[in-house]
Design a protein around this nucleic acid. Structure first.
Lengths: 245, 245
DNA sequence: CCGAGCTTGTGATCGAATTCTCGAAGTCTG
DNA sequence: CAGACTTCGAGAATTCGATCACAAGCTCGG
């Protein structure tokens, strides 16, 4: 038996596991007991070969000629992603975005639980958001400790992001998701991912511009409506890709 | 003279241009007129060689021994990204997230303008968010046409995402940013990017788990606090990476 | 129990992205 | 004006990810 399997899952695969997970959750609500790599690929917007290779990193969980057992695969992926219990998450910064995140239901149904809300603004402290109330920043250490928080979400303005990140790390958080449009650095051993709205839009803008205007001109006003079918010209259209922070 | 320069900017580079842009904006507010690739790399969380290679795809805009002229480079990048004028953006779905996005100030300062808000819920139609009011979905065609909207943002629940995407494309939008936790497909020629909160957290969770627990066990209750310094063991910590949709 | 038909798992291949390295080209000092 | 110093630009090498192709293994019908 033994785990001689090389436990090295490529990073690119890790980022796709949540997609498979989400698709499998959908399938699990139907009556299908098994799913083929091809069908799973369709659902996740992937191709079958990639799905199989990704899943093979977890182990040989499929059955040739049949496919993958949905429940079993779900279990394996959630085990791999550490979703068998809810992670407590702290949200720092309760402006528009922070409040929206705090109220976001999808959180709780996908392996996470909002366990603490913090804001530096005294006017916000004490405010109820969802079923939590906002705490002051100096409560961070205590909250992280008492509630076993390992993941922090930064939803502050850009200029506070680095300080908040430092505070989170100092308090013991080892994973940070940064929504602030600022680059923050953390010590090695702490995971950091970032989501930046403006960045995403700017990437879209790049391809949008190139589509209507192969050079780099910007004075051309509006997009000519009309031809909805053409346009597969030079740009890689539907891909989301990477940022480092 | 001529543009024999191969106008092929790698996709990975495109996703980083916004980061350079953001960093350069910061620099522009200081008195520094030029910046070296190394300093820019520091600011953006990158390494100098990558920055130089990325920028070289835009052209030879640097001066050896000196660095890059901040203003000039900003201009070139914003031209390349199509940020010299504001793109009108439509936001569909004004729940927590949609409202937060609509009010998000960073939008307007980075090349975009919220130009229309739509929601299928009659109870939300007419509601004022920021300085716009929410319109019904059947106004989509008209709004996209009249306001030259090319980019649509989906902030609906998952089960509405595909329909909204179809409607946006039919109305003439050619770029879509999807915040709903669902996979949507669009015809070739339409750009699609996705941002999924739960996905990001799950990726963090993966590495978090591996850090405290090199195998795949999940029954271990809480993260052992204490050793904040160790842990640079096997995981690639601070990288954000790609999803395809 | 055997052969036909699926579907997985994975070695091999291809291509893209990152990193390394160093010559070229500029500035600055004395 | 010469030589030391800085920094870019880009070829070369390497790493990483995606795709291909097919043998292995499973089920099912007869």
């Amino acid at each position: 038996m033994a785990d001689s399997a090389p436990r090295t899952i490529p990073e690119a695969t890790v980022t796709r596991l949540p997609l498979y997970y989400r698709s499998l959750l959908q399938v699990a609500e139907t009556d299908l007991a098994t799913i083929s790599s091809e069908r799973l690929a369709d659902m996740a917007g992937m191709n079958a070969a990639k799905v199989r290779k990704d899943l093979s990193y977890l182990g040989s969980y499929g059955t040739r000629g049949v496919g993958y057992d949905v429940e079993y695969l779900l279990h394996q992926i959630s085990r791999e992603l550490g979703l068998t219990h809810d992670w407590p998450v702290a949200i720092v910064g309760l402006g528009n975005l922070g409040q929206a995140l705090a109220k976001y239901a999808g959180f709780s149904t996908r392996g996470f639980k909002v366990a603490a809300l913090l804001d530096a603004d005294p006017a916000k402290v004490g405010m109820a958001v969802g079923d939590l109330s906002v705490e002051p920043m100096d409560a961070l250490d205590r909250l992280v400790r008492d509630r076993s928080i390992a993941i922090g979400v930064i939803a502050t303005p850009a200029d506070a992001a680095q300080d908040v990140a430092d505070a989170l790390v100092a308090a013991g958080a080892r994973s940070i998701l940064n929504f602030a449009p600022a680059h923050v650095t953390v010590e090695p051993g702490v995971s950091l991912r970032k989501v930046d709205l403006a960045t995403e839009l700017q990437i879209l803008s790049f391809y949008q511009l190139r589509r209507s205007n192969p050079s780099g001109d910007t004075t051309s006003g509006d997009t000519t409506s009309g031809d909805t079918t053409s346009g597969d010209e030079a740009m890689p259209p539907q891909v989301s890709s990477a940022q480092v922070s």
